[in-house]
Simulated scan of single mutants.
Amino acid sequence: MNSKTIIFVALIAVCFAQRREDIFARAVGPCIADKCQSRHTCYYGQCVPEGSAPPMPALDKSVAVGPCINYLCPGDAFCHQGHCYNNNV
């Protein structure tokens, strides 16, 4: 890879991280049973206004860290469809 390609890839990664941070800044609270109040959608365990986040990707259950207990997960993990996932998924 040449240096221009590396810089481009790094720039895309920084933009994506900033975008995700901006999305979470608009969150109104955690999802409960993968549900949110009206006009909000569940995105990585947080309720965000509809249209402010891309669709939630399908998560691979083989990378789940365990089941949700009362819709809760330990540490920085989030609950999605009954499974806990690390936030870096």
Rank of each mutant, 00 (worst) to 15 (best):
A33C: 01
R26G: 01
P67E: 15
V65K: 02
I6S: 13
E50Y: 09
G45N: 01
C73G: 08
C73R: 08
C84I: 03
N2D: 15
A10E: 09
P30C: 05
P54K: 07
I7D: 14
C31R: 06
V89M: 09
A10V: 14
I69Q: 06
K4E: 15
P49L: 14
V63Y: 04
R20G: 01
E50R: 13
N87A: 04
M56D: 03
S52F: 09
V48D: 05
I6C: 10
E21K: 15
Y71H: 09
A27D: 10
T41S: 10
Q46F: 12
S62K: 07
L59T: 03
K4Q: 15
H83D: 06
E50V: 14
A53G: 05
C73L: 12
A33T: 02
C42I: 06
C31P: 02
G82A: 06
E21H: 13
A58R: 00
S38M: 07
C84N: 06
S3C: 11
V48W: 01
T5D: 08
A17R: 03
E50D: 10
A77D: 15
T41M: 11
P55W: 02
G29V: 07
Y71E: 07
R26N: 09
H80F: 04
F78Y: 11
P49C: 14
G45E: 02
C84Y: 04
N87R: 00
T5V: 11
C47W: 11
C31N: 04
V65R: 02
K35M: 14
A27C: 12
V28G: 10
A27T: 11
N87W: 01
P30Q: 13
N70M: 06
K4A: 15
H40S: 10
N88L: 11
D34G: 08
K61H: 00
Q37V: 10
R26Y: 06
Q18I: 13
Q18C: 12
V65C: 02
E50I: 13
D34M: 07
A77M: 12
C36V: 08
A58V: 04
G66A: 14
A13P: 00
A64N: 00
M1R: 08
F8D: 03
C15P: 00
M56Q: 14
A77I: 09
L59D: 01
C79F: 12
L72H: 02
K61I: 00
L11W: 03
P57L: 04
C68H: 05
A25D: 08
I7F: 13
I69D: 04
Q81K: 10
G66Y: 09
N86V: 02
P55D: 07
A77P: 05
Y85F: 14
